[in-house]
Nucleic acid binder design. Structure first.
Length: 307
DNA sequence: CGCATTTGACCCGCGC
DNA sequence: GCGCGGGTCAAATGCG
């Protein structure tokens, strides 16, 4: 983990149940400044082309979106310093949730399985091609922290669970899912945060090379549009930028409909971005959240509210 | 019956 | 080299 550059997003998914209004709430958000909308106070950076990107889009195989996302994340060959060990210890949940974003230069984004070929026979598995041993290379990963009572969040794609492991120092297991679409090697891991059991950490790895399943696409697409029109108005307003702007700020949202909740019951969600620089979060009793970056540049302090 | 989930075994990388 | 932990496989099982 130490060599990995962490890419972590936090979004607060408010589980509300049927009939509940899916509008985001701001528990201890101070009264909005009088006069002018919140949006006016903190307009999203107009120059950022990533604001209108849904998570579904991000996960989708669209090369444009993927590269845009990669660009936004500065997925290049110059990884930033990782969290120091003390930071990791202080922020165990974030560290546990941290997703590696590595540019391994292998260009194997769509490779369904770059794992070494295994024997298909029963019993003991035999290691293949001794001399061809290659270091296993990972695809870029993105993690999202989601406040939710359900662990497997609907994101528009179909997943098949292929494993579950106990997580060290955590009573909560980690589940492994793979996209069921043929030749799509996207995987995701889902685990519940030990520090904050109400938070589900979802880590996506890889890039979908297909469209959303048609059975889901309609609802999801419509929901995405509806949700985004809502969040895009509100979300920037709760990000207080006292010093500088986010270089690569954009908003993501998970795709689920407030009017037609997914079978799993969750309603909607918002993803807060960060850029490549390593960072960690402080979360204290619904107080404004502070983002601290530890990159080369000083991006100041960023606060946000949990919705 | 087909598909998804469960679960124990296995593989692999890494740190000591 | 060894042990540990993360990740994956695949047979067994469950479910609609």
């Amino acid at each position: 983990m130490a060599e990995e550059d962490h890419q972590l997003y936090f979004h607060h998914h408010r589980y509300t149940g049927a009939g509940d209004d899916a509008a985001p709430v701001f528990p201890n958000y101070p009264s909005p400044p009088a006069g002018g909308s919140l949006v006016d106070k903190a307009p999203p950076p107009a120059s950022t082309p990533y604001n209108n990107m849904s998570l579904t889009d991000c996960l989708h195989g669209s090369a444009d979106h993927y590269h845009s996302l990669a660009k936004a994340f500065a997925l290049d060959a110059n990884p930033s310093p990782s969290l120091s060990s003390s930071e990791v210890e202080d922020h165990q949940a974030a560290a546990a949730a941290a997703a590696a974003v590595e540019d391994d230069g292998s260009n194997n984004i769509n490779c369904p399985d770059n794992k070494k070929e295994k024997s298909t026979g029963k019993g003991k598995k035999v290691q293949a091609g001794k001399g061809e041993k290659k270091k296993r290379q990972r695809e870029p990963r993105f993690a999202f922290m989601t406040k939710s009572e359900v662990e497997h969040l609907e994101d528009g794609y179909r997943w098949r669970k292929y494993g579950q492991k106990a997580v060290k120092n955590s009573p909560y297991p980690r589940s492994y899912y793979r996209c069921t679409t043929q030749r799509c090697g996207v995987k995701k891991r889902v685990e519940r945060s030990f520090d904050n059991p109400s938070v589900v950490v979802t880590t996506y790895e890889g890039q979908h090379n297909h469209h959303l399943p048609s059975t889901l696409r309609g609802n999801v697409a419509a929901a995405s549009a509806a949700m985004f029109s809502h969040y895009s108005m509100l979300a920037p307003s709760v990000i207080h930028r006292p010093t500088t702007s986010f270089p690569a700020e954009f908003l993501l949202q998970l795709s689920s409909s407030p009017s037609s909740p997914s079978p799993s019951g969750h309603v909607g969600s918002l993803v807060y971005p960060r850029q490549q620089e390593s960072f960690f979060r402080h979360q204290r009793n619904n107080q404004p959240q502070r983002l601290q970056f530890s990159g080369d540049e000083d991006y100041g302090e960023h606060f946000y509210y949990v919705i």
